[in-house]
């Protein structure tokens, strides 16, 4: 594979990663590279473990095999305080926003600054207002998280993620459940933050359209494997049936519409044991009823 040569300028690289949940293999020996200063997207249907991949990169989960290198360091070999030092330079945008519900928007953005720096309150104020201005929510600083719409909450979370000026941001499904306007705002925001702050962005998403509009490079995952990769144009023209089904959103194809099950006719004709015993039970009951009446 030509794109895995080590000369590439990648900030995050995943090598031969394997990870399982119970019996199910979420990732089966996959390798990915995330280039510095670029927006790289990981796409695939729901349930392919895209969020799990972000948690593996963030060091919240441990892989069975393989390793994850961030900025030249193996995330899973770091000591706890080293990992925390690294995480200060990683922002993560959760799908739900994960704002602290007992604090105002302002305090939420100020939270990492107050926890990690000893800056005076006046400096924190300027920084928080700058970050909120960048996401267009300076006027919403006194609202509580439950007063925000989903899109606004995600933008506040984004302001919080960039509060410590990280080197990279991990976006978990940033476009899911957004109305077209806030979706457009988020797409623009991610793009402009990436270029103005010189960030490296990793986006996990299944929104084909929005993601291909801003991504520099795309990986398509399915069944724990990479089924396609390349620039958005290359992906669009991919010969893989799989990738085509995903990009076009066809209901049936290599990914079946039906969840694995036995033959339909068999299933209808042969009732299962519990059903059978329930019928018997109700027979007994009606017999009893007859006897006592």
């Amino acid at each position: 594979m030509d794109n895995f040569d080590s000369t590439k300028n990648s900030l995050v690289s995943v090598h031969n990663l394997t990870f399982s949940r119970g019996e199910k293999k979420i990732f089966d020996d996959i390798s990915l590279e995330f280039e510095r200063g670029k927006i790289t997207a990981i796409m695939g249907p729901s349930g392919t473990g895209k969020t799990t991949l972000l948690k593996l990169i963030g060091g919240q989960l441990f892989p069975e095999h393989g390793n994850v290198m961030v900025n030249g360091r193996n995330v899973h070999h770091l000591k706890r305080d080293e990992l925390y030092t690294l995480r200060k330079r990683m922002g993560m945008l959760f799908q739900s926003g994960a704002l602290l519900t007992d604090m105002t928007v302002y305090n939420n953005v100020a939270f990492p600054l107050r926890e990690h720096t000893k800056l005076p309150e006046s400096m924190i104020r300027s920084l928080v207002l700058m970050k909120l201005e960048a996401v267009g929510l300076r006027g919403a600083r006194d609202l509580m998280p439950n007063e925000l719409s989903g899109g606004m909450a995600r933008r506040v979370a984004l302001a919080r993620a960039i509060a410590l000026d990280p080197m990279m941001i991990l976006y978990d499904e940033p476009f899911t459940g957004q109305d077209p306007i806030s979706m457009g705002a988020l797409v623009l925001l991610i793009k402009s933050l990436n270029s103005t702050l010189g960030l490296t962005s990793i986006i996990v998403s299944h929104d084909v359209h929005e993601t291909s509009a801003i991504a520099d490079y795309i990986y398509v995952l399915a069944d724990g494997k990479i089924v396609g990769q390349g620039t958005p144009q290359e992906i669009q023209q991919s010969s893989s049936e799989w990738v085509q089904q995903f990009m076009k959103g066809a209901a049936d194809g290599p990914v079946h519409f039906h969840y694995p099950a036995k033959e339909y006719m068999d299933d209808l004709l042969h009732s299962e044991k519990p059903l059978f015993s329930r019928i018997r039970l109700s027979d007994e009951r009606s017999e009893k009823r007859k006897r006592y009446s």
Binding site: K55, G58, Q60, Y84, T85, R87, K88, M90, M92, F94, Q95, S96, A98, L99, L100, T101, F111, P112, E115, H116, R160, L164
Partner: peptide
Amino acid sequence: GLMKATEQLSGMEMMAIDPIKR
């Protein structure tokens, strides 16, 4: 429990803040 359900605890971990301590 709700903080866990709404990812606030793992959000904190990703901000390099130990939720146990905080």
